Amino acid sequence: MCRNIHQLHNFDPPATSAEVHAAALQYVRKVAGTTKPSKANQEAFDRAVAEVAHATHHLLEALTTSAPPKNREVEAERARERSAKRFANA
């Protein structure tokens, strides 16, 4: 599950709200141990996702770096290459 949480800091263009929400959703799913909560837990689950996304937005706004922003396409290609190497041996 957590492999779907990607680094969001220091990219050009910056992380979108959808990317932040997706990372928050994956985090809450991992912590809760479920990908789909029961009806009884849906409200708490959704609230947790919203709170984690909100905190993540604040974190990303507050972080500073002197490194140049990363290119999304280049980083995606590197990830594909790592994945191909990892699963080629499987």
Rank of each mutant, 00 (worst) to 15 (best):
H6K: 15
L60E: 02
A22E: 06
H9Q: 10
A15E: 07
A18L: 09
A50H: 02
M1P: 07
I5V: 14
T65M: 09
A76H: 07
T56F: 02
A50S: 14
A23G: 03
A48L: 12
L59F: 09
A48G: 05
N89C: 08
R80Q: 08
Y27G: 01
A62E: 04
K30Y: 08
R78P: 00
E75G: 02
K39L: 11
H9D: 11
A79S: 11
H57W: 02
A88F: 06
V20N: 01
V49S: 03
R3Q: 09
K85E: 10
E75A: 10
L8Y: 00
K39Y: 03
T56K: 01
P13V: 08
T16L: 01
Q7M: 06
Q7F: 01
R82S: 09
G33E: 12
V20Q: 02
H57S: 07
V52P: 02
H21C: 04
A88R: 07
E19H: 10
S66L: 14
R47Q: 15
H21D: 11
P37D: 10
P37G: 08
K70D: 00
E75M: 13
T65E: 09
C2W: 08
T35K: 15
R86Q: 10
V28L: 03
I5T: 06
H21S: 10
G33A: 09
A32N: 01
K85V: 04
A67R: 04
P68F: 04
S17I: 00
A23S: 10
H57L: 04
E43K: 15
E19F: 04
R72W: 08
A40P: 00
P68Q: 14
T64M: 13
R29K: 13
P14V: 04
E81I: 13
G33T: 10
E81L: 13
E61C: 03
Q7D: 14
E19N: 09
R82E: 15
T34M: 10
K30A: 14
E51W: 06
H21Q: 13
T35I: 07
A44I: 12
P69H: 11
F87K: 08
G33K: 10
A23N: 08
Y27K: 05
E73S: 13
H57I: 06
Q26Y: 06
A79M: 14
E81S: 10
Q42D: 03
K36S: 08
P69A: 11
S66A: 14
K39G: 13
K85W: 03
T65F: 09
A90W: 05
H21W: 05
E43R: 14
A67E: 15
E73P: 00
V49A: 06
S66I: 13
R47T: 12
K85P: 00
N89F: 07
R82V: 01
I5M: 11
E61S: 14
N71H: 09
I5A: 07
A62I: 01
A18R: 11
A50K: 15
A18Y: 05
N41L: 13
L59P: 00
R82G: 01
